[in-house]
Design a protein around this nucleic acid. Sequence first.
RNA 1: GGAGAAAUGGCAGAGCGGUUGAAUGCACUGGUCUUGAAAACCAGCAUACCGAGAGGUAUCGGGGGUUCGAAUCCCUCUUUCUCCGCCA
Length: 423
Amino acid sequence: MLEITRIRAEKDILIEGLKKRGVDFSPQLNEITALDESWRAKKSEMESVQSESNKISKEIGKLMGAGKIEEANAAKEQTAQFKLKEQTLKDEVSKLEEQIQELLYDIPNVPQNIVPAGKSEDDNEIVEEVGQKVQFSGTPLPHWELAKKYDIIDFELGVKVTGAGFPFYKGKGAKLQRALINFFLMEADKAGYTEYIPPLMVNEASGIGTGQLPDKEGQMYHATKDNLFLIPTSEVPLTNIYRDVILPGEDFSIKMTGYTPNFRREAGSYGSDVRGLNRLHQFDKVELVRIEHPDNSEKALEEMVNHVKGLLEKLGLQYRILRLCGGDLGFTSAITYDFEVFSAAQEKWLEVSSVSLFETFQANRLKLRFRNANKKTQLCHTLNGSALALPRILAALLENYQTPEGIEIPEVLEKYLNFKIIN
RNA sequence: GGAGAAAUGGCAGAGCGGUUGAAUGCACUGGUCUUGAAAACCAGCAUACCGAGAGGUAUCGGGGGUUCGAAUCCCUCUUUCUCCGCCA
């Protein structure tokens, strides 16, 4: 959520920045500033009425204390005139507040300067491409066929027991999955991230805190009886640890990591994109979350990007980094780098990580602040990134490491496994 | 799931209808004293919004109500604790 003070101060700059998302938000922002102005007027009117009636109430208190009952009763009658006025003003003020709030919820974060303008993924900017395309002697199989051939992932069984998009991992497939989780967590640990095992369900306040609610309500599984939501990413519980928190000073850098399964309804996505492991309703991911001083967030973003690069290089995967254009940028993000690995068998790039800086957008909703040198509270910057999402990494590993003898295992994973080949 | 008790500032803990944004203690910050430290003493120390400022308004778990006036009374929700039941 954008800060209202920022909208007051630099509306035109924000409108200009938001244009990179391919949408003109000037009607909304103009409406907000107009509503804000009448809100301020009404509010100060309401407060002066409140002030008056508070004064009289205090007087009554004094009179009662002094035993002057009759005078007190006379004063009581005075307050009647304020009653109605106060109530009307209160209603008006809170209605205006609601309207402003609603509009604010619908305005996405402003892209940073270096974010390219654009409408869709076609406008994303390729920042870097690393590694070579794998050469195969024959025709490589896609991962869903390999999964069947070696009996390591069972999609049909998932359909039977739960539904599409909920596969079973089996035998060496399950172990490889576990090894990857371990590897990612240990790498995060080495980089100084504190590991958490968070709850897999969150309440409504947490959903609002990180921006899933109300914008993306349909994306989450909702346990209506208890009004809890299955997490779409561990970003939600991890970041919400710091909801309504004021950090005591300027000297902080909070680095968290967590492995969780993630649950996404993915309503409306069908076709070849969802084949095999490409898109699932439940998938595993190791997430990095950082809370940083605004002066330090750019550096943190760079560190996270480098961390993810390191992981992909250790796994020996060909990858590229994209700077997402305005139109493809997530609602809450100011800048996002997507990592894609090349699936040689599917002949396409698969997104495996997304590293984002939210600046104060998320912190504003979370009310996550720190106390600056002037003893004032100031919003923190938040960041997160996947390091990494498992299914597509698994897909790429299976496809790119296939040989006539079986699927080889990258060396870095060997210490987490008791086999060196899937055959 | 059933019965009871409770929720107050960073922490502990008063207040149970009137001048209380909230006693007191601890913690913290600044000062005096000291060669330095400790101790002692003095001062400061919640958040948000409106306002150029003076100042004002709101907030004592959340929401609603009674009242001229609510931290204090009522309703409701949530959470915690104790006891009983069930259980990995």
